[in-house]
Design a protein around this nucleic acid. Structure first.
Lengths: 246, 246
DNA sequence: ACCTGAACACCGTTCAAGT
DNA sequence: ACCTGAACACCGTTCAAGT
């Protein structure tokens, strides 16, 4: 614990650019199988299984080891610690396939496909959205998706600068919207109803507008909120494109 | 720990709409001072001091108690647990003052002022951005800011529906952009340089576009990224406004 | 009635001792 | 050389015993 509060600055933080750079330079350690059958692959599988069944917080080093029939110390032969394990696992889950956008789509439909596809990917894997927002997604799998999207944006006539900023904005938007809406489980209609009830009951003298807009504020389904924001973003990007090449 | 993995569903989760609703109905317990001088106020002060000096993770119940010269069990007289404490603390920190937008601003400048002001508030308090994204901000302080912003949006001619969705989108954007950019400490020029270096060194055959756009992808200052996204959002909202009242 | 020491059931990580 | 039991230094929370 002290190590995580006062991390050794000589060793780059797992998931940081410097850390990934060292990893790419060193080449993949190739994780040859060990005598006891433990490997990074098996550890990741176990971690995913636990997250799926019991949630991210339950995926402790001890629980993962128990799942694999060994002690927690054994995991440290394959991974420097829990942070590194989660970084590696996250990249493994980020297998965004951008091939479908290679088709004949206009830039706007393509961006919608990308944003919805990425959202779908994050929604499809438990805890992935949360894992995502803990870093910059610089692993090989993530870079594969980045490459595909950027290449397509350039082909659609985006300048280098606008393509990069559009990519960063869209991905940030997808992650951010999931993060804020999932945590509070707005997905659950009961929770949305509870928000409306709350807004209807607070002091109407101090909060007249919030009370009046109770339904509009509390009743939004996350998908609708997402789609509204996406449309707004793409309207704005359309304006940027036009400004760039009138 | 088992309690947090398997939370009692009869007791609403701290920070949820149902939990706040109960709290508003019950009225503030007014936290009368106790014999030993401990109070919710003092606990929050201590927690803030620790977060400021040692970070959010260091603000454990034990450390807070130690700071106050007592044992961890004493805190549970004032707060149901760590989650509740952080929820209450977060709302106390959310003292957004929207009075400056009461002035004679056009809707766009006002939205910029709101977004930048909220961003400034979150940047000014350590860990507040992270605390924010763990809930829906339904506390009294947060609702005060919500009320002010919504009232102003309506006065600027936004419909109820568009005002609510604009409010939600803007706040989500501010929080999301901080969350993704702070964690990875892109604020630090060294880290940005490391990202560029990484992109320049990866395989140019597999990632030609990422390599080519290394500077544009890695060199963005968070403020510039934020301002670009904000401009895009407001361009898009302009389009929504126009569609609403041509 | 209010408070809290001590205990319970957990953590991540290290390292010396085993093979 | 590789592996891991046992230990270290922490957690959040509870509850019975104290005042």
């Amino acid at each position: 614990m002290i190590a995580s509060v006062n991390p050794d600055p000589s060793e780059p933080r797992p998931g940081s650019a410097e850390w990934w750079r060292n990893r790419y330079r060193a080449g993949v350690p190739a994780g040859r199988p060990r005598a006891n059958g433990l490997s990074l692959d098996r550890i990741c599988e176990a971690t995913m299984a636990i997250i799926e069944n019991e949630g991210l917080d339950a995926a402790t080093m001890r629980r993962i080891a128990e799942y694999l029939g060994t002690g927690p110390a054994s995991l440290y032969r394959h991974v420097s610690g829990r942070d590194e394990l989660l970084v590696l696992l996250t990249d493994r889950l980020m297998d965004f396939d951008g091939r479908s956008i290679e088709e004949d789509l206009d830039w706007r439909s393509g961006c919608e496909l990308i944003a919805r596809g990425f959202r779908g990917l994050l929604l499809g894997r438990p805890a992935l959205a949360e894992l995502c927002s803990r870093g910059q997604m610089l692993g090989p799998n993530s870079l594969r998706g980045r490459e595909q999207v950027l290449r397509w944006l350039l082909r659609e006539g985006f300048s280098a600068s606008l393509a990069a900023r559009t990519y960063l904005l869209l991905t940030r938007y997808v992650i951010g919207s999931l993060h804020t809406n999932d945590r509070s489980s707005k997905q659950n209609p009961d929770e949305r109803a509870a928000v409306i009830r709350l807004f209807e009951e607070i002091d109407p003298v101090e909060f007249p507008t919030v009370v009046a807009l109770a339904d509009e504020l509390g009743g939004q389904r996350p998908e609708d909120e997402f789609e509204f924001g996406l449309a707004v973003l793409l309207d704005g990007i359309a304006a940027s494109r036009e400004r760039e090449a009138p």
